[in-house]
């Protein structure tokens, strides 16, 4: 099972809100293999965000099991989860979540700092990823000096810098116009073609269409799980 990146069994998450218990995720069994490009879709309240937080190791399930890249992560402590996030997951957020006062280069270096990579090696790898996303000439710029598309590309470079097993993109085009959205999605599709496993969260069908597979959540369970017939970027 070496090529299984994500495997969940009966994944559940309950929240206690006052006297009420909300069953946000009610038992999800999912398997995602290496080099897949999966779009997770679902209306708000579908448990999609809660599910993604658990997949991203930002949250732990109430019940069920979750293996990431062969490691059982559903029972790890906060600090162990921090290390898993650092090594195995690359995040791309809707709101970019870059440090506004730091240069693009420093932003991309950030995961490597917490991984304990030496400064020279860190710099080299961060430069390489920034060049890869086409920002080789913008490395010393700070996020406020960049366009939305550029910022999201910095975020993509940051997500890739640790060579993660999983790239987790949470509504990556939510704050971008359609042209820029297309550019970012094409970049993700290109990464996937080079072997990067990507899990994408979106509520837009034309964005989901870039993925090879779609998983639809509703009321905390998987409603639909199917392969995209068109696939690829030409959707």
């Amino acid at each position: 099972m070496n090529d299984v990146i994500i495997r969940t069994e009966g994944l559940k998450k309950d929240y206690v809100l006052g006297a009420e218990t909300v069953h946000a995720v009610r038992g999800v069994d999912l398997e995602i293999h290496r080099n897949e490009f999966v779009a997770v879709m679902g209306p708000s309240g579908s448990g999609k965000s809660t599910f993604m937080n658990m997949i991203g190791c930002l949250d732990t399930p109430t019940a069920g099991k979750y293996w990431l890249n062969g490691q059982l992560v559903s029972e790890l402590t906060d600090d162990e989860l921090a290390r898993v996030r650092n090594k195995a997951i690359g995040f791309v957020f809707q709101t970019f979540n870059l440090l506004p006062r730091a240069s693009a280069l420093h932003n991309v270096e950030l995961p490597l700092i917490y991984a304990g990579v030496g400064s020279r090696e860190r710099r080299r790898r961060a430069q390489e990823k920034l060049q890869m996303v086409g920002l080789g000439d913008r490395m010393e710029h700070k996020p406020p000096e960049m366009s939305g598309g550029q910022r999201q590309r910095v975020a993509v470079a940051r997500a890739l810098v640790n060579d993660p097993a999983l790239l987790l993109a949470d509504e990556p085009t939510g704050n971008l116009d359609s042209t820029t959205s297309q550019e970012v999605m094409e970049q993700l599709a290109a990464l996937n073609r080079e072997g990067q496993t990507i899990l994408l969260v979106t509520h837009e069908h034309d964005i989901a269409a870039y993925a090879k597979r779609q998983v639809h959540l509703r009321d905390g369970i998987i409603e639909k799980d199917f392969m995209n017939h068109h696939g690829g970027a030409e959707a």
Binding site: D78, D79, A82, R85, N97, L98, Y114
Partner: peptide, 16 residues
């Protein structure tokens, strides 16, 4: 707060 969130998401431990 947000910066702290970003750092944590990217792998900073509580200690860090």
């Amino acid at each position: 707060t947000r910066e702290i969130g970003v750092r944590k998401a990217l792998g900073a431990t509580r200690q860090n």
